[in-house]
Design a protein around this nucleic acid. Structure first.
Lengths: 354, 354
DNA sequence: TTGTAGGCGTTATCAC
DNA sequence: GTGATAACGCCTACAA
């Protein structure tokens, strides 16, 4: 099917392209009658403007780019959902790319998005991104840019994230208040900021409660922080410390779930023998046995907020209004479930706002 | 930063735009020297072609559209990963949309993608899509279209899917061969084809093994087939039938996981009191206790294959080669885990190719 | 080997 | 109220 253009409508109606264009866009200086004729014909021919031409002319693509480390990730898939919802409301489309945690790929994808002329970019950095020239480039091109979740503090643009340190602090404090004393931490890689911050929050909570920090109770999850890390580290921990550990605070729910598995396999009872506290509130955590206490990050909100801010910046740029970069910290919440509650008759789920 | 165009390069070098264009595209009829000068300057100015102009001129966007019912879905997030991988290899970008299982939204999104001039569309239909005019429109526009997973048999285009009926048949047959006789089925909504097909496979397996089909053993999951459906239906089932049921085959892993939860809460042992067999091999199923037997659908393969076929069609269309629609059935596999194995010393995981 | 000219489809300016 | 014209940036047949 040959796609229909303004020109065709104009010829059919024996009027000029200009008039057709104006009629279609509801300009006031078109007679009611011509306007009706144009609209009718356009409707009948199922006219849709050629978006390449519009974009070329208007210097606007109505597309934003989104780069995340991985689509197969409960957290990110919800963030995406939030972004898509807001994009839709703003009549925008979303190009999605995943960096697979590779810096080089991320860099290339930024270039691709720039060359595609997207109106803005949302990105959650890969764990291996330590240089930010590619982000500077976006800024230099004057394309609105927003970092979410995995952010870089030194880059000058808007950011949406959570306070990992506080969230971890709250979780560990909760455990301490519950009476747990020897609390281990299964942390993530040394690099990513959230791994560092959650560790620092853990440490601070101990110190603020006069519990000595023992580096021997900190285990590193190198394997991209997955299930096996939890399982294997649990094994190691019990070898190292016998059953002297009260509780474990893990950088991610998945790690806790690995621990649960190890405990299941070895007749260790959660939470009675070992309490667990995860991070992220993956769906899985609410259905596993025992249900896992964790930190809710509100990924949908993160996605929504990020997109809202980006669209605001896009609009401002269009109107030549000044843009001030925003830093939004999405509040987290502790989700208390069975894995951290020793006594039997606790409520299954209560959410604590801190 | 003002973005640099061919014209600017041309002016700077005192040559024509044409020559610059040719040089950049490696045409043979440009002197080595001019070519070098152009390339150098382009490099230095960080020239990138304006993709709107290119698209307008070439009638190609280098973008494909993907519509899925929901991003927050283990299966689809892996499909997306497969699509993104292949798209990247083909130098294509992907616009992602989600229909939220709404027909109207799906329809609107098709229009948006068409108006955006995407080179092809991959779609997994919403459960509420019963009319296909919007798909016909895509075909009429001569835009390559491919349906995956949730397909419509009557639409004339390429398709990638699994044989739900056979997969269900295999799963239930497996249970029967294991000795289970009274096997219930928690099915999905009446409409979606996969819900119907899995039910039919279940039924057929019973009949082929001389086990009478008892409609009372079929429970409907209306609530968008989620965790609660499994939990509540399990409750209902035990009320209806006491402990006379051997096993349950569920339309989705999540339903099985709801059942596991109910059993946990009520002292019913899986698999000893009740065996379970799910569908989809969600990640969760491998870490829950007991690990869940299920059907592997190979979503990554589905994504890859779908994208490959689409790009092939896009290429053929460009070259005016004939296109023949493909129907690819991705083979499924049973993943046997603990939830279906009564005796204690079975291997934790074995994959059976059927 | 280089350049001229036309056109992709749309929009904006300005003259009639 | 209407339309001619130019421009967005690029590509390419054709002329020089």
């Amino acid at each position: 099917m040959r796609t229909v253009t303004l020109k065709q409508i104009a010829e059919e109606l024996n009027i000029s392209v200009t008039t057709v264009s104006k009629a279609l866009k509801g300009y006031s200086d078109v007679s009611k009658e011509t306007k009706k004729r144009v609209l009718d014909l356009a409707e009948r021919l199922d006219y849709t403007p050629n978006s390449f031409a519009v974009s070329l002319r208007m210097r606007q693509s109505k597309i934003i780019g989104v780069i995340i480390p991985d689509t197969v990730h409960y957290f990110f898939s919800i963030v995406i959902k939030g972004i898509l919802k807001v994009a839709e409301q703003h009549d925008y489309m979303v190009i999605l790319m995943q960096s697979n945690e590779k810096f080089e790929l991320e860099k290339k994808q930024i270039d691709l998005l720039l060359s595609k002329g997207v109106d803005g970019i949302l990105i959650s950095l890969s764990n291996n991104t330590k240089r930010f020239d590619h982000l500077q480039k976006v800024i230099k091109h004057d394309i609105p840019l927003l970092l979410f979740d995995k952010i870089a503090k030194t880059v000058n643009c808007s950011k949406v994230y959570i306070d990992d340190r506080k969230a971890a602090y709250d979780a560990v404090t909760y455990l301490i208040n519950k009476g747990y004393r020897r609390i281990a931490h299964f942390r993530g890689d040394l690099n990513p900021q959230n791994s560092i911050d959650r560790f620092l929050g853990y440490k601070q909570a101990l110190l603020d409660n006069n519990i000595p920090f023992d580096p021997k109770l900190v285990y590193m999850c190198n394997n991209n922080t997955d299930f096996d890390d939890g399982y294997n580290n649990a094994k190691q921990m019990f070898e190292d410390h016998g059953h002297t550990i009260d509780a474990v605070f893990t950088i991610t729910d998945l790690i806790s779930i690995g621990i649960i598995k190890y405990c299941d396999d070895n007749g260790i009872k959660v939470p009675d023998d070992l309490a667990l506290f995860g991070f992220s509130n993956w769906f899985m955590s609410s259905v596993i046995n025992p249900e896992l206490s964790t930190v809710e990050q509100h990924p949908f909100k993160i996605g929504e907020t990020s997109a809202e801010i980006l669209f605001d910046e896009i609009k401002r740029k269009l109107n030549d209004e000044p843009i001030e970069y925003k830093k939004v910290v999405i509040p987290t919440e502790l989700v208390i479930r069975k894995s951290s509650e020793k006594s039997e008759n606790n409520p299954i789920k209560k959410v604590i706002n801190l």
